[in-house]
Write a protein that binds this DNA or RNA. Structure first.
Lengths: 232, 232
DNA sequence: CGTCGGATTGAGAACGTTCAAGGGGCGTGG
DNA sequence: CCACGCCCCTTGAACGTTCTCAATCCGACG
């Protein structure tokens, strides 16, 4: 996995068109502020609510976003964490099926979906990139089914750490901008269980951490074994 | 939910182009056999394997297909059941991330993805329909996160029944072409648990069944309550 | 220095799984 | 036509993983 990380997988070539930078992770491209407009967000701020009519697509400049849904009784599911360079806002045809909230202070750039659509309609390479992007998102989402449907708590947390490590590309040092509750709601667990698993990994020498938002992977092989890494 | 069912949601207008019939459920359109070519499948037959290079997109004419992934130790996840009129095969950019197998005897029509792409590239309404289709698929997939991540066994089974009832459009009579094992692997449960929940619903007068592959919804309101139906 | 939200740890309970046995439908072969 | 075997479904009992509830700890911030 996972989702946005797949969009950057080997198949997508460098995109010469600014709007489609939306669909890449933006490494080395630089954003096109002329095209969208930036939004500064405080911790916990809502970008859009579940059920709101769709309008814009967003790209994260800095910080982390979560897209989530709440059940009436308060249960929550975090569909995805969106890191800097990744895009979100494509969670419904007419209306958003999830809400989007800032996990940390964040800056995102919003692009009217209509504008993105027109762009994709009139530029063939854009259309192709968009197709691959969406297919990658979809199969990434379905891969999350494996985690939620069939993995144990330890496997989920290990998979999550490896996923973040890949997407964060800061080597073995993994940044966890989100709370244990956020992680739990993304992995279908409770915060207590997540915390216990982290402690277990630490005791086992698989990871180390100075504070609870910064984890160093000490034994990647063992972490991958814990994750039951199914070949992607 | 779920997935393909969303593609037919109110927003997609009737599509005048034959290739895009791929993306609709085909109600009232009729298939275009000149465009793709049909494939007759026996129960259990594999259409493509996980990891195989992508080639075609498929539309189900009759029968039911499942797309699934296996972990090394045999655990299995059924990402989706594809009913007659629905499409599958978009589970990877270069290579399939899931395998596709026939749940029942089935007939599917295969379309080269390249051909579909070209079509979408050159017809604006096609491009728009395709976009909506993929966004609907994606948000449908993410909705499954709610089920797998936060719902109880009874809620999962109830949600599944309601989903099938909507997609099968045969009123309160729900056809279950797949085994309890298939259902379990789609809902992140075991076949025994699924069976127990069905029995519970039957005892409670919520459903009735002559045989185990045919269920009648007797009390839809109560079934929806059991499902904790979050507003889609 | 005190307060507060998040993180950790523990103990007990609950839900779903595992293991095991029995039942039913269907196809094959005698 | 019946018998057998196979696969799937159902049901029960015991077990285990994860959740729930509760207490404590820690770091950030006023």
């Amino acid at each position: 996995m996972h989702i946005a990380s797949l969009a950057r997988g080997g198949s997508a070539p460098a995109l010469p068109f600014p709007a489609l930078d939306m669909l890449s992770t933006g490494e080395g491209h630089g954003l096109q502020p002329a095209f969208g407009h930036p939004l500064r967000l405080e911790r916990g701020a809502e970008i859009y609510a579940e059920g709101a009519p769709v309008g814009d697509v967003y790209k994260v400049v800095s910080g982390t976003i979560r897209t989530c849904r709440y059940l009436q009784d308060g249960r929550r599911v975090v569909a995805e964490f969106v890191l800097a360079g990744e895009a979100f806002g494509l969670d419904g045809v007419d209306h958003h099926h999830f809400s989007a909230e800032a996990v940390t202070e964040a800056v995102v750039i919003s692009f009217p979906r209509r504008q993105l659509n027109e762009w994709v309609d009139h530029e063939l390479p854009a259309a192709r990139a968009w197709r691959n992007f969406m297919i990658a998102k979809l199969s990434g989402a379905q891969s999350h089914f494996v985690l939620l449907g069939r993995k144990t708590a330890a496997e989920r947390v290990a998979s999550f750490l490896l996923d973040l490590a890949e997407r964060g590309n800061s080597g073995a040092l993994v940044d966890l901008p989100m709370s244990r509750y956020d992680i739990a709601d993304h992995l279908g667990l409770t915060a207590e269980t997540v915390s216990r698993i982290f402690s277990g990994f630490k005791r086992g020498g698989i990871i180390a951490n100075r504070d609870c938002r910064k984890v160093r992977i000490l034994d990647r092989a063992r972490l991958e074994a814990e994750a039951s890494r199914d070949i992607l």
